[in-house]
């Protein structure tokens, strides 16, 4: 019971964290990113497409397709995020508008492309790409332990990928020269310019990283929640991630905490419904727990947190 909460909670929290870190990269460079929802959807679509194609060629071994689909998802998300970069950095569009527009465009585009590709090439008429069920691993030695056991039981391989990504991203953002430049772009872009670096280029890279990470998060959810890529991928994870990073004050480690709270709360409310053997319609009420929790937590943490100073502003060289 408690183990199940931890297992399900981690499977939800880690992909969410990857998406939120994508948001942190973009927002630390000064580009508001409300497009995460659309980016993760497009990433999941790219991954699903890649999986469907690969399975046609190597039907006997879906493990290769499984791992390659993560790379495809990252590339797809990064490519789609170029639109956000183009609109926000080059075309000086309002960044909130751009984000909302990209979400709508991504829903329309992935829906259309999935249905069309299925019809034209894969001789199916559905609007879904079916994936294989992801393998799950258990570390037998430790799985008997009370709480630690939950951490090592039924672990999806992408949870390991997610953890690796988190470590790499933390190092990149806080311990490298590039990370310093990136954070400077969000707080004081003029200083970056004065140091002889291109604000536009750094922001472009940051937005692409954020697209790639969102894409990986998207395909993780596609594997864990529904084992297919369908319009149901747009269930608000991108916005939960944004709430998590606001709650985490734009820092990776506190954001990890926020994601864990969301994931565990979601899993716990499900288990509670199961435990009390309530009617299945109660599930609908259990579903609202993470969303309500976000709102309540934001009430307490939104006021005093410190967003990057230049967040949401178009960089203008002439400004002092």
């Amino acid at each position: 019971m408690l183990n199940q909460v931890i297992i399900d909670g981690l499977a939800f929290a880690l992909p969410l964290l990857v998406i939120a870190i994508g948001g942190i990269f973009s927002e630390h460079s000064g580009v508001t990113n409300l497009a995460l929802e659309g980016l993760l959807g497009f990433g999941a679509f790219s991954g699903g497409l890649c999986f469907t194609i690969l399975v046609q060629f190597i039907p006997f071994d879906s493990a290769v397709a499984f791992y390659v689909s993560f790379i495809a998802a990252a590339l797809g998300g990064a490519t789609f995020s170029l639109i956000h970069a183009l609109l926000c950095i080059r075309l000086q569009a309002n960044q909130v508008i751009s984000g909302v527009v990209i979400n709508i465009a991504a829903m329309a585009l992935t829906g259309f492309l999935t249905a069309q590709l299925n019809q034209s090439f894969f001789s199916g008429s559905s609007n879904k790409f079916f994936l294989s069920t992801a393998p799950r691993y258990t570390l037998d030695l430790l799985s008997g332990l009370p709480i630690l056991g939950g951490l090592v039981t039924n672990v999806y391989p992408f949870e390991i990928i997610a953890l690796l990504l988190v470590v790499i991203c933390w190092f990149l953002l806080y311990r490298t020269r590039f990370g310093l430049h990136l954070r400077a772009c969000g707080d004081n872009p003029q200083s970056v310019d004065a140091a002889g670096l291109s604000v536009a280029r750094i922001r472009l890279v940051a937005v692409m990283i954020s697209g790639g990470l969102a894409g990986v998060g998207g395909i993780c959810f596609a594997y864990s929640i529904s084992t297919n890529v369908s319009p149901a991928i747009y269930f608000g994870a991108g916005f939960l991630a944004i709430a998590a990073l606001i709650f985490g004050n734009w820092q990776i480690i506190p954001t990890l905490g926020a994601c864990l709270i969301f994931g565990l709360a979601r899993a716990a409310s499900f288990q509670l419904v199961l435990l009390l053997e309530m009617d299945s319609s109660i599930f609908d009420l259990a579903m609202i727990v993470p969303y309500v929790l976000v709102l309540v937590l934001l009430v307490f943490f939104s006021k005093n947190n410190r967003a990057p100073k230049a967040l949401g502003q178009v960089y203008d060289k002439g400004q002092s």
Partner: peptide
């Protein structure tokens, strides 16, 4: 944007 989306789901 965040609060309205959350409320949509709620």
């Amino acid at each position: 944007v965040v609060s309205t989306i959350m409320l949509n789901y709620v």
